[in-house]
Design a protein around this nucleic acid. Sequence first.
RNA 1: GCGGGCGUGGUGAAAUUGGUAGACACGCUAGACUUAGGAUCUAGUGCCUCACGGUGUGAAGGUUCGAGUCCUUUCGCCCGCACCA
Length: 939
Amino acid sequence: MKYYFNEIEAKWQKYWNDNQTFKADNYSKKEKYYVLDMFPYPSGAGLHVGHPLGYIASDIYARYKRHKGFNVLHPQGYDSFGLPAEQYAIQTGQHPAKTTQENIKTYRRQLDQIGFSFDWSREVRTSDPSYYKWTQWIFIQLYESYYCLDSDQARSIEELKSVFETEGNIRINAACGDTLEDFSEEQWKLFNEEKKEEILSNYRLTYLSETEVNWCPALGTVLANDEIVNGLSERGGFPVVRKKMKQWSMRITAYAQRLLDGLNEIDWPQPLKDSQTNWIGRSVGAMVSFDIDGHNENIEVFTTRPDTIFGVSFMTLAPEHELVSKITGRDQKEAVEGYVLSTSKRSERDRMADVKSISGVFTGAYAIHPFSGTKIPIWIGDYVLASYGTGAVMAVPCGDQRDFDFAKYFKLEIPNIFENVDISEMACEDKNVKIANSDFINGLNAKEAIRKVIAALEERKIGQGKINYRLRDAVFSRQRYWGEPFPVYYVNGLPKMIDTEYLPITLPEVQKYLPTEDGKPPLGNATVWAWCTKTNQIVSNDLINGTTIFPLELNTMPGWAGSSWYFNRYMDATNSETFCGKEAMNYWRDVDLYIGGSEHATGHLLYSRFWQKFLYDRGHVPVQEYAKKLINQGMILGTSAFVYRKEGENVFISKGLIGDFKVQPLHVDVSLVNASNELDLEGFKNHVLNKDIDQPEFILESGKYIVGREVEKMSKSKYNVVNPDDICHNYGADTLRLYEMFLGPLEQAKPWNTAGISGVHGFLKRLWKLFHSDNEAFLVSEDKANADELKILHKTIKKVDEDIANFSFNTSVSSFMIAVNELTALKCNKRDILQPLVVLIAPYAPHIAEELWEKLGNKGSISTVEYPVFEPKFLIESTKTYPISFNGKMRFTKELSLDLDKVAIEKAVLEDERTQQQLNGRSPKKVIVIPGKIVNIVG
RNA sequence: GCGGGCGUGGUGAAAUUGGUAGACACGCUAGACUUAGGAUCUAGUGCCUCACGGUGUGAAGGUUCGAGUCCUUUCGCCCGCACCA
């Protein structure tokens, strides 16, 4: 019988589905193991071959763990809120829910055909009200919490209120936004509702505030820095401006230190930990307050080098700094306002990326040096960012290169405060030089001086030591339709949470998915979007009366809201009483293995750790870190193909003939090119893409048009996407699974290339053949296996076990090939060997394994059959083929008994005539013998 | 600029603690077979050389009996962060 992979795969996929083979039980006596993939965003383009790479690896691991006797949770779902579906809705008028559902259907079909062992009964979709009900619930929990710095945890805001009522805020030590003035319990009681709420929102873990944002008028939305490329929106390429806006923020900064500390507890790749560490950006230094000459204001700065304070010769404020308008002199007003305006047009990333051009304006105001009392000019400059530190810098040109460049450019004073250091050409950032010209810290090194300056600042109450983090609070509002609605309504402009028992607050229907004409978010188009506090229902906007019926929040939550806790939902995905039942949560606890791309390092993987720590603090989850181990799979790159169009003409020149012609390279669909880079000319002419090209002419080499190749990210716009469907159809899912693993190390980025696929497909056919006679009937011998056969089996078991432990799936595929090649050579078709071999291969190629398992006469699925156990006794050797090397170069091999000791080996080797031949009469100076390894003769 | 990673045949890549470099595949060459099959099988294949032999893991040094692996310098590529005070 031939290997009809399509039939076999369809049969077993149906079997798994019918029998719910991979449904995980929440209450098992088996040890649990939770294998998680980063869930996909269901885009309209469908799955491409890059998606399954991580999924195949995690599936192999999950299946392996089932064979090893674990109760495995291996779920999958969809991160189904997001901008592409909304953009599509804007263009076509189709409801995003509809297109999302269609896309999910395609994804599901594609995932199913690869044979993943997902427990689909736990599927989650972030856009489903039954899911986002709990996203809204978590948001409310955050709103109702503050961060207590004494106990270092989130606590109920009610506790804080009762403290305010009994003793004011004097003794409160909590994470807080603005520096608040002290108030007593009496004062608190006298504050009106509005004032109280304003104070509380400084403590809440999610709060409304005016934030400077990247506003994209064309998309009508705020963009994250990482969504902006070269000052334009990543999607669409529209201009972006800086704008102030009232937005929800998440007080992730309260967790900065714990997010750093937690990294020590988890087995995540070091580069990923490094990027989270950099993102959080802890720096130790001091806050210093500078008085402003002639104003009743002061400038707070954070510095990591308080020891250089006597080197301050000017100050620089971010152009957006709130003091700028207050302190600017009459003569400077025009210049300053012009500069502020021109800065507002530049994106933050743009400003940061531009290192070469130096710009700034003098404000006309002077600060007073806190120790020397000298007057220091205050400048504004766009190299200072409002969002980092206090948005102000004490400039020390002799000790900081950027300050130095600024001072040189504007011909400002550069006082030298370092002993025996030449600063005429560049600043000195070395912390080991001694300080000079600095009053009470002369002669000290940086470390000593820092301590002394901080002490002096604290004594005079003009500053204190401080740990500063680069991490900022995360903006949580999006001006989009296709996201979670906030469970929030407004009473006189003050936010109120909807009682959790009335969740979910479902997305309203709208006529248009664009922002409204007057610049409100898309939900501003909804006509039934008001909250009735009497009936606790969403009602028509017409009924808003300001007494019982109020407007609802128009923003929606960002993409990362739903993905920040989904791993908990899988544990108890259908629970309608709570976001995850306690019993299920205490059984599954955390993810044992998480596989996904490193591009989420400072987004999803940081926010989700933050939410998990918060949920832990409030007693909702049992662990602080939700993923014990994480593996980043490398990106699969596409190999783009290019044709070369002669500039201004419809002439395409084959790659080898371009020579000196001016050509324009154009992407061409990779499906039109064969393995030898030859273009299908007829296909090219008929391809939709090229319909607009009239009568193309081709200049051929040897009768062929040869395309250029380049490795790029796999993307629809580069026409280099390869769809797994074709491979599943032509070679089968088992071949696809093996091939993706065989491509190379999991964590390494690699270009997709189908050239080698026949190799693994051939392997599966040879495996099949081992079980079949020449006339293709199933034929397995019941004879006892011999030593050679057992050795092949056990060496493979050993290798595969080690490989899986190291996530080295590429080399285990090789081991399978070697085993099958060797068994084929021995014509071995013995059950003793083949039955364990099938189990060994089952996690990698589950369909063929199930089929052969059944043909071997077994009942039921192979998926929980015990994995073969390695027995060292089958690998014991009595001899070793020693490499005999001379001066480190291997010349010949000699088989010797492993019982021989060093002396005996040396004797045997020296007696060998080939040794004498190599030595050619010389006597060896030294003979190195490592029993069991090598012999090296020196001389 | 800072941080991280990577350089091995025509190609994808192997190579626990330093111990036979190139496993396993693709491709290529030659051949066999045929019931033309998504064929299969056999042999060969790092480079130079008819061969003996030489040479070879980006380059140059070093440590060592022995280096792809350790150390120093250097070149190139990729990724992340970036005027972070």
